[in-house]
Design a binder for these strands. Structure first.
Lengths: 149, 149
DNA sequence: CTGATATTTATGAATCATTCATAAATAGCC
DNA sequence: GGCTATTTATGAATGATTCATAAATATCAG
């Protein structure tokens, strides 16, 4: 039995391994996880899977186009399965939570900066910064709130 | 004699020191420099100015709003004097060169994502990725080109 | 199915960017 | 000119990530 995921890995020119399958599966239900979070998730099924090995796998999958890596300022790199569309991200300035944001503009106006100084633009990356619902609530009820340490 | 720069530092609530003046002056003519580049530039006038001290000064100035820090994926943090407008950046995927880009959209459409998942958006950061003129030239003449190591 | 080989993983050390702790120096006020 | 809080200097520490090398394994040829 060859799964959809196995085919996808092979089609990307990579060998199919348990580690790669496990990493992709971990990110399926847990987008925007960093290497450490991916590692801890995968360890459930592959005890002894080290953080360094996680980086090797994440880099291979990212290089093959099976994962997308985002690097918001101030947080370690995060990875996601959603690679085939041009979406952006909101990052919470309070807790670092990340969510996807579909660009509202059909014509991708963000791809047309005014002056590019001679640069040939290939992609535009938009990061929105703000407060997630949880952090909004926290900032409105600072007294009754018990903040986790 | 009190210079413009000294006033600006004092008005930001900071004490005026030679290190802070030197860092601001270094970034005046050399925007988007990273900590190491700033340090090397300042050492010309302040021999013995360490990288760690550079970080302390950069953080103080950034915290006081006198500098803006940008952190493009894959490169160390960079600093610039231009803090009072909402401009964006182009980063060269070949060599990492950074240039300013004024947002072409008067109404800042990038600040209005379609769905924010409950987030309250405060700022939008746009990073354009592409090839700088030098790297374009290099990729068109790969044979005759001598690449620096 | 079996072996050969290139790819992948595991492990520990190394690197890079940055921060922290503490002691010495100094800016700005009295 | 001295006092004190702020700032700087120094060395060590941290966090994220990569590197080097050896062991394991996926895939292919026969």
């Amino acid at each position: 039995m060859t799964t959809e995921l196995e085919t996808r890995i092979r089609d990307a020119g990579l060998r199919v391994t348990g580690q790669r399958l496990a990493v992709l599966e971990a990110l399926e239900g847990f987008p925007h996880a960093d290497a450490d979070a991916v590692n801890r998730r995968v360890q459930a099924s592959l005890p002894g899977f080290s953080l360094q090995a996680t980086y090797v796998v994440l880099n291979a999958l990212t290089g093959a186009g099976l994962l997308r890596r985002i690097e918001p300022a101030g947080s370690p790199a995060r990875y996601e399965r959603r690679v085939d569309d041009n979406h952006h991200h909101v990052v919470c300035t309070g807790c670092g939570a990340v969510e996807d944001v579909d660009c509202v503009h059909g014509a991708a106006p963000c791809l047309a900066p005014s002056s590019t100084g001679g640069f040939t633009i290939s992609t535009a990356e938009v990061t929105f910064w703000g407060l997630c619902p949880d952090c909004q609530a926290r900032s409105q009820h600072p007294i009754t709130d018990t903040q986790a340490e």
